[in-house]
Amino acid sequence: MATIDPLLVILFMANLLILVLVILFVVKSGCFSLQNKIQFWLIAGYILLLLASPVVIQMLPKENFADERIKKVSEKDLYVQADLYTIAQGASPEQIKGVFVLEQWEFPYNGSMLNVVVRPLYEYDAVIVVERKDSADGKIEAVNYASKPIVELIDLSEIMKPHKVALDGNVLKVTAPEFLQIELGVFRNEFVISQILGDTELESAPWRHGSQLIYLRVPADVEVQSEASVHFVEKQ
């Protein structure tokens, strides 16, 4: 059995004391000495509200729930190999299961030197892969590949924010995606229920990180330089 932290006991006792004081205050206090009828109707109203709540809860639209709105995946999808970093080692993105295109751009470009900058440089470790095309077609293609983040079997890829890629002169600026913080909410059964019916813990399916990568296809006659780490791969 775990040792109880004395601080927790003190906090617990303090809460208990506050609660006792609240009860005594409500019972004894002059401001609550309402006439019996008003007291009765207040309590009756409260009980009626509570009795109505199981009916009201059934009427709430179910499509608002995150797991109804956002696509659910099966447990086997969790184990689909989606290692984006194999792309940086030369694997073709199209051949990796679970990788999808989050966003793509195309820029006309006639220069011979392209400077790739990443912002913010020191706080963010972007993975940029560059592939030189066979022809000098005067187009830079940028693809933001991503793997699915999966939490509680919910595929959160739809709410994933892509990088921003912009070309200004001979500078291709890659900006980190807007940081997204999502707080999902779930209900746990009360301890009085779990005692008899067992624990209804959250689905124990593991969570999976999603990751992103920027894949650049540059014309054959364009040289690429960057202050950030860039991986060059051969055309697949």
Partner: peptide, 27 residues
Amino acid sequence: GDNFLYVSVNEFSSDLIIWFTFFWIFV
């Protein structure tokens, strides 16, 4: 979480209401 996304799951329960009711009836 990672560089792009932080997901947290907040668990809700009415255990506290039941505990408070226990204290109430004791008092």
